[in-house]
Design a binder for these strands. Sequence first.
DNA 1: CACATAGTACGATCACCATCGAACTTCGAC
DNA 2: GTCGAAGTTCGATGGTGATCGTACTATGTG
Lengths: 107, 107
Amino acid sequence: MERAPAHPDVSEFDLQRVLDALVDPVRRSIVIQLDAAGEDIACGSFDLSVSKSTATHHFRVLREAGLIRQHYAGTSRMNTLRRAEMDRAFPGLLDALVRAARRPARR
Amino acid sequence: MERAPAHPDVSEFDLQRVLDALVDPVRRSIVIQLDAAGEDIACGSFDLSVSKSTATHHFRVLREAGLIRQHYAGTSRMNTLRRAEMDRAFPGLLDALVRAARRPARR
DNA sequence: CACATAGTACGATCACCATCGAACTTCGAC
DNA sequence: GTCGAAGTTCGATGGTGATCGTACTATGTG
């Protein structure tokens, strides 16, 4: 188990990678939940509809895209939304997505 | 050849579908070019790196997501960015993407 | 120590999608 | 009508990624 996983620097953020991460509904749900909570959340405390191993996969994709930061607290792995850094790299992107997710798909 | 293809109404716009459309770099390039031009562009006048049949596929995905409107002008098929409608359904989304695409991937 | 908890690593599977070429259609020009 | 230009349609193919179960590792607790 990698106890200190690599996180990309803001200067390395890549739009394609970020969109690839955000296009998956499970991953977008993770981001939405983090944004709504406004605080760190452990991997296991998310409301997800996939298995643990699949969840691990999704968290890795989000981390490698730069959307979340992960650090251990005991056996739990805490997840932080890298909001400010994302906003700096891609202004308005997360805002638009969070806002779009909050309202019904059809109006 | 379908001469009057179906376009979704704004009330039917779906975030997942829109993101699925925008995550592909070729399709995003089409949207960016339409936004930059500010006017309708024929399918064949885009700067794309794929074959004609693949391009047709991409235009269809964009149309079915509601991102573009298509109509014939002679043998040419003109494409219009549905900017205002997208902005109404998903405020800030296109702005953020166009803006992100304008600057280099890394800074 | 033994045990439970939290998550990772690894392979395998499966579905989807971007891509293409070839054949076809539609329209305008000659 | 004949030709070319502009797109579409139709398979086929190939790669990628989401998913899972199982085995494993690390940490905390008794």
